[in-house]
Simulated assay, not measured.
Amino acid sequence: MSNLWKIPCYFVLICMLLTACGELTNTAEQTFHHADEGIDAANISPDGTLAVISNLSNGISVWDLAKNEKRYIWNHQGEGNNLVVNIHIAFDNSYAVTSDQDAFALWNLANGEPEGFWRIDESNIRDIAVANQGNGILVGRSNGKVMFFEPRTGRRLEFLGHTEKTNSVDLSPNGFYALSGGNDYVAYLWDTRTGQVVYKFDHPSRVTKVALDDEGRFAFTADSKRDARIWDLSTGREVSNLRYFERQKIFSTAVFSKDGKYLLTGSPARRLNLWDVQSGDEIKSWRVTPRAGSQPQTAVVFAVGFLADNKVISESSSGLAEIWPIQSN
């Protein structure tokens, strides 16, 4: 990493112009309208076949992305405005969890039925995740506590490692390992069976986004300023620090490819980016369609996913699902 700063400034500028310019794509290959009024949260299943989106006035909807058909419509807390801002789909497509600031719900994706609703009284919910078969739910809270909950057994474990607000959480498919990041400048990988810390990942500022590789190889942790790091979960060592030229880059979503070669991220500034895991280099960048009527013209990329045939997909606050080819035509 230190060798980067020894490269002459003019050479860095030339490289930036050659590699970054022309790699930004604004036109999607396919566009699907999922909510005319825009959306407030979304998640795409790891295999790219399902999306769950939340809309203030129309509730929560589950979409079959292959057919672009609406499968279910859910109401998180009955009638009235829907305030769900966190959604996560299990790795095996069996269950989804949704939450507003005060409560979370577990939904069966096979039949569309709810299987539980739980209220959190002592602090606001910041983020959620669910394990395969709905066997475990992870809840990050504003008081810094992270709760792991088993709906069927009632077992509950609270992780107390964070000293300030928790911003982002993720859970391994088997529910055994959790990743959490917070305002205390730290991300922790910890064991949900014991509460013991496996790795501590330090940052120079607030950790705003974390993500686990579903195959158990990597973790992604990003802070509010310059550091967005990929870690090797077999050693706890840094693999790469994403290389970008902005002074600050916020990530709203992140997923690893199944082969472990790539990381796909979204941002609140319309950007969808593909990164090389080993080098941290940006491979390609896309700009999603802005939300209609927004000033300035912007959109939050809430969810991203990898598709077959060398394509990726995004769900953004514009209410659109957009498919992008990785290779230029």
Score class of each variant (00 low, 15 high):
44 I>Q: 04
259 D>R: 01
153 T>P: 02
265 T>N: 03
294 S>N: 10
298 T>Q: 11
297 Q>S: 12
242 L>T: 02
50 L>G: 05
173 P>H: 04
259 D>W: 03
206 R>N: 13
245 F>D: 09
60 I>R: 00
79 E>T: 13
46 P>A: 11
95 Y>P: 09
203 H>G: 10
249 K>H: 04
291 R>Q: 12
61 S>G: 12
175 G>D: 05
10 Y>L: 13
255 V>C: 09
17 L>H: 14
257 S>Y: 02
59 G>P: 07
141 R>F: 06
58 N>R: 13
300 V>D: 07
20 A>F: 15
149 F>K: 02
236 G>A: 03
225 K>D: 06
95 Y>M: 11
298 T>E: 13
92 D>K: 07
297 Q>Y: 11
189 L>W: 14
62 V>E: 05
323 I>L: 08
61 S>A: 15
237 R>M: 11
237 R>W: 09
14 I>Y: 15
118 W>T: 10
48 G>W: 14
295 Q>N: 13
318 S>G: 15
326 I>Y: 12
229 R>C: 11
94 S>D: 00
288 V>R: 05
310 N>Q: 14
284 K>V: 08
195 G>K: 07
132 N>T: 04
144 G>A: 12
38 G>Y: 11
161 G>E: 03
263 L>A: 05
31 T>M: 07
164 E>I: 01
128 I>P: 03
178 A>F: 09
132 N>M: 01
96 A>K: 00
30 Q>L: 13
251 F>T: 02
284 K>W: 08
65 L>S: 03
5 W>A: 09
65 L>W: 00
321 A>W: 04
324 W>R: 08
5 W>P: 00
242 L>M: 10
49 T>R: 13
4 L>R: 15
151 P>W: 01
48 G>Y: 12
39 I>V: 15
156 R>C: 06
145 K>S: 13
199 Y>C: 00
230 I>M: 01
115 E>N: 13
1 M>K: 14
40 D>W: 06
241 N>Y: 02
315 E>P: 03
31 T>K: 14
313 I>V: 15
159 F>G: 10
290 P>M: 00
100 D>T: 06
239 V>K: 07
235 T>P: 12
55 N>G: 14
31 T>G: 09
154 G>Y: 10
328 S>H: 14
219 A>C: 10
47 D>T: 12
188 Y>L: 04
268 P>W: 00
203 H>A: 02
327 Q>L: 15
138 L>V: 03
25 T>S: 15
131 A>E: 01
205 S>D: 13
98 T>K: 04
175 G>N: 09
189 L>E: 06
237 R>Q: 11
278 Q>I: 07
308 A>I: 00
276 D>W: 01
83 L>Y: 15
204 P>T: 10
307 L>C: 12
31 T>L: 05
223 D>C: 14
279 S>C: 11
160 L>D: 09
75 N>F: 09
190 W>G: 02
258 K>W: 04
59 G>A: 07
265 T>I: 00
182 G>L: 02
203 H>V: 03
50 L>T: 01
245 F>N: 10
8 P>D: 09
296 P>L: 10
